[in-house]
Design a binder for these strands. Sequence first.
DNA 1: AAGATGTGATAGTAATACTATTATATTTGC
DNA 2: GCAAATATAATAGTATTACTATCACATCTT
Lengths: 228, 228
Amino acid sequence: MDKLLQGVQIRINEKLYMKDPESSGLGKKIIEFSIQLINDIGFESFTFKKLGVQIGSNESSIYRYFENKHKLLLYLTSWYWGWMEYQLVFATNNIKNPKEKLLKAIFIMTKTTKEDSDFSHINEILLNNIVINEYSKSYLTKEVDAENKEGFYAIYKRLVGRLAEMITDVDATYEYPTSLASTILENGLHQHYLKEHFPSLTDCTNKITPTQYLTHLVFNTLNSNIDE
Amino acid sequence: MDKLLQGVQIRINEKLYMKDPESSGLGKKIIEFSIQLINDIGFESFTFKKLGVQIGSNESSIYRYFENKHKLLLYLTSWYWGWMEYQLVFATNNIKNPKEKLLKAIFIMTKTTKEDSDFSHINEILLNNIVINEYSKSYLTKEVDAENKEGFYAIYKRLVGRLAEMITDVDATYEYPTSLASTILENGLHQHYLKEHFPSLTDCTNKITPTQYLTHLVFNTLNSNIDE
DNA sequence: AAGATGTGATAGTAATACTATTATATTTGC
DNA sequence: GCAAATATAATAGTATTACTATCACATCTT
């Protein structure tokens, strides 16, 4: 992640904010410090008032950017998936062999974010952590169908679509490419969570990664050896 | 699910309640109607005050049974997994063939609950729905490690252990039995959710079930044909 | 220099998530 | 059958949350 990413701008659904946080210093501060604060105290305890204190700004000013903290979470997670999509496309674009391509894709989507790319005010390591801990709360709500219609999950859906296509390119006879794609993304996060909080519920450790588990799962399911 | 289940008592961690809801009429009403209400309005909007109105009782009385709504959710989901465990053991006990046993286990764990067993005040169909929609909220919290130490997730963990063992009995060389077991349970719920709210993210429909998808996934991964 | 826009400060409201106290039922033990 | 113990109901009160509204002030623009 370097110079090449400098110019990247991730497009977020405009209905998620009242005022574009990328358009001002305060907006960027809101993003930067909300990531830190949500990471520290968890999404439930996170409030705009507390965030205001952190950034030396007022609650009411934050409300001018985001309607509520739920929309902010949707903004942050959308950004994350957009960033993932960018990495996916960038890293697999020039790979012609379908198996190699899928292998790389699984790696990109399930690895731990180990370093902050520094190309923005967004700390990707912390954001990755937030997604592991909070993403499902962004859709497990009574408003999910209405918000889905508004396109709030569009980036994630596009990403699943891309993965599913790569799966089909490896094995066109496989009957569940979309389910498998969503399993890779969702269970990737879940295995990371289990490793941290429920080690007895996973084989993932410091030596065995979710990437290894899911790679094995996918390629055996597709009845297609990695190096065949 | 009939007579045989009449005598079943699912043992819930005593620290989850202040007063055993099974010990009184009001307690049973709290369980019965909290399931209905959470199902109707979602866990976020659910409050003890609203529940009090529903059952013609007072908020303060409910607080004598449960410290807060989070503990109530843990109680309900523990009960669900306990019930699942009972069904699993009951249905697989006398199956000797490991593949057949695992096949049955996956079916039990990933099917939709279609009927209420009527052996208690608990509506299993609604509870199944609650687990699909809310279970991850019960552990995606900042208190997860402390609560795990208290044994609040013990039943679920035991269930994953049982499944992992069945996987190993089918293929002792498989390296990720525990991760696969947790994937079956967690992704089973997730595929049901996707089917309902994000049909474009799954291949599961009215004709293709999460059970079929996961059965195929597991048996192909284990490199072991179902009817071989 | 005037006008538009962005931010900060303050105040206020309804709801949530409780706790405490007291009163009134109901159960149980003798 | 009555007292004592226990369960439930009613009421009130608190701190916090999740906002909305208003106004003052600063800054940026033209």
